[in-house]
Simulated assay, not measured.
Amino acid sequence: MSRDDPEPTAEPTDADQLLVLPDELRRELKEPMGPIETDAARLLADVDGPLVAVGDVVTYHFLRAGRPPDVSLVDERTERSAVDEEVRETVTEATTVEVVNPPATISRAVVEALLEGLAEDEPTTIRVEGEEDLAALPAIVATPEGGSVVYGQPGEGMVHVKVTDGNRRDVRALLDRFEGDVDRLWSLLEERASDDE
């Protein structure tokens, strides 16, 4: 499906929008949350456990390296521009689910799709209508200990976050500073954790 195709889904409601990024956190989120790597094969050598890729170019590099991420979140854009056709076709070929996540927000739909993807045995590709960038934050909280969340750092490369209790705590503290229904986010994440036990 291209961006020109009619959208079958309804416009998101306020109930679908869990969190909104406040202006004062924008600069803080530009700092990478882990080491930056430009070579996918080298990065993959340091990956144990589940791999979540946030971004079209990151996902593309992993697919080209022969390691489909366990969960990929793509929006057919990179640095605010459309990705080229080869990248778009490669990363959306195995789209499993489509969700709406407006820019500068974290929607309930993207969190639920992420959690469902992590619970699947097969790789899951989530095509986001809107923007997928902030999904890296709930991904770090939701990915099992020792897993990896990788997202793009504009103009620099791929940021590799190895999931630990410490960086989960840091991200939870960051998400607590967002505007919106933080309690609902924690409730969704805890429901899934209890389902997995």
Rank of each mutant, 00 (worst) to 15 (best):
S2E: 03
S2F: 00
P6F: 06
A10H: 15
E11D: 12
T13E: 06
D14L: 09
A15K: 13
Q17H: 12
Q17C: 13
D23Y: 10
E24A: 14
E24M: 10
R26D: 14
R27Y: 04
L29S: 07
E31V: 13
P32W: 03
G34D: 11
P35C: 02
T38L: 09
D39G: 15
D39E: 14
L44M: 14
L44R: 00
D46I: 08
L51R: 05
V52C: 02
V52H: 06
A53V: 09
V57A: 10
H61Y: 09
H61K: 15
F62V: 05
L63S: 09
R64K: 15
R67E: 08
V71S: 12
D75G: 06
D75W: 02
D75P: 12
E76G: 13
R80F: 07
A82D: 10
V83C: 06
E85M: 14
E85F: 07
E89S: 01
E89I: 08
T90R: 13
T90N: 08
T92L: 12
T92D: 01
E93D: 10
T95S: 12
E98W: 12
A104N: 08
T105V: 04
V110Y: 12
V111M: 07
L115H: 05
G117V: 01
L118Q: 10
A119S: 15
E122W: 07
T124R: 09
I126R: 11
V128A: 04
V128Q: 07
E129L: 13
E132L: 05
P138C: 08
P138Y: 02
A139P: 07
I140Y: 13
I140K: 05
E145H: 14
V149D: 09
Y151N: 08
Q153I: 15
E156I: 11
E156N: 11
M158H: 03
H160V: 04
V161R: 00
R168I: 11
V171L: 05
R172N: 13
A173D: 08
L174C: 14
F178V: 03
G180H: 04
D181P: 01
V182C: 00
D183L: 12
D183G: 13
L185D: 01
R192S: 14
S194H: 15
E197K: 09
